[in-house]
């Protein structure tokens, strides 16, 4: 179980809804991954009228999951705030995954605009899930302005590079033991998800790794298992690596028959 802003969900797996071969396959992937939260974008889809993307969203809402609308494609705090307000009207939720893009090639977040937007949205009653880098001071600022969830990337969006800076991810976990932490973006394969879950992260958010897999449905299932494995491993308490081999049976006192 993991709790995001007073809503408790069973799954530690959040899934994005872009780039699938079809909505049908997206829906099957979400079921196979036993996902409770799906993210949806609306910046592009609402051009020409708020209802323009309605059919696609209905397909998602019919899955009976929590919808986490995002502000993907927004390049300023102003743009992101407007999109968030539109999302609240459309999806009847205070949840918003806040993305403010600073670099349109790497989709690296604009951290300065992110804090500005997060502050205004939190003050307006939104429950903000900020897409951020793994910077500790940024995390502190976001918590100060009212965020109660943090979503650091582990590598650029869509890069499939896996966790590039485990030290930074560990630092966030140890500084904020009680804040739900979600790795958002950069995961490529199931073992990456296991790695970050073993650090004690509460959840991972994926999109491309599943959507662009040869078989998205099977890949969603694989990630589900990987996420659960990492989570259980973390809870079970893992051995730390050692510098030398330690025999499990003491050698001292062993009978010698030679």
């Amino acid at each position: 179980m993991v709790t995001f802003y007073d809503k408790e969900v069973a799954s530690h797996f959040l899934l994005g809804t872009a780039q699938y071969p079809s909505p049908q396959i997206l829906s099957e992937a979400a079921k196979a991954g036993e996902v409770d939260i799906l993210t949806v974008s609306l910046r592009r889809e609402t051009a020409g009228g708020q209802q323009a993307g309605q059919k696609f969203w209905e397909l998602i809402q019919n899955l009976g999951v929590h919808v986490l609308p995002n502000t993907a494609g927004c390049h300023s705090a102003r743009d992101a705030i407007l999109t968030a307000k539109m999302a609240r009207d459309l999806f009847k939720t205070n949840w918003i995954k806040l993305e403010v893009i600073g670099n349109s090639d790497t989709l690296q977040p604009d951290l300065f605009q992110l804090v500005v937007a997060a502050e205004e949205l939190c003050a307006d009653g939104f429950e903000v899930f900020p897409y951020m880098t793994d910077d500790l001071v940024l995390a502190e600022r976001l918590l100060e302005v009212g965020c109660k969830v943090l979503m650091p990337w582990c590598a650029p969006i869509g890069s499939a590079a896996g966790p590039l800076n485990l030290t930074a991810l560990r630092t966030l976990r140890s500084y904020f033991p009680d804040t739900p932490l979600v790795v958002d973006a950069g995961l490529g394969r199931p073992s990456h998800a296991t790695t970050v879950m073993e650090l004690g992260y509460d959840a991972v958010l994926l999109n491309t790794a599943v959507a662009k897999a040869g078989d998205p449905v099977a890949m969603a299932r694989a990630f589900k298992h990987a996420i659960e494995a990492g989570r259980e491993g973390y809870l079970a308490g893992m051995l730390e690596p050692r510098d030398f081999a330690t025999p499990s049976t003491p050698l001292i006192g062993q009978a010698v028959f030679s």
Binding site: R44, E45, T46, A47, G48, G49, A52, G53
Partner: peptide, 13 residues
Amino acid sequence: MIESDADLKPTVR
């Protein structure tokens, strides 16, 4: 490929 039925002219983006 945009999940939208809005019959718009192409957007700048």
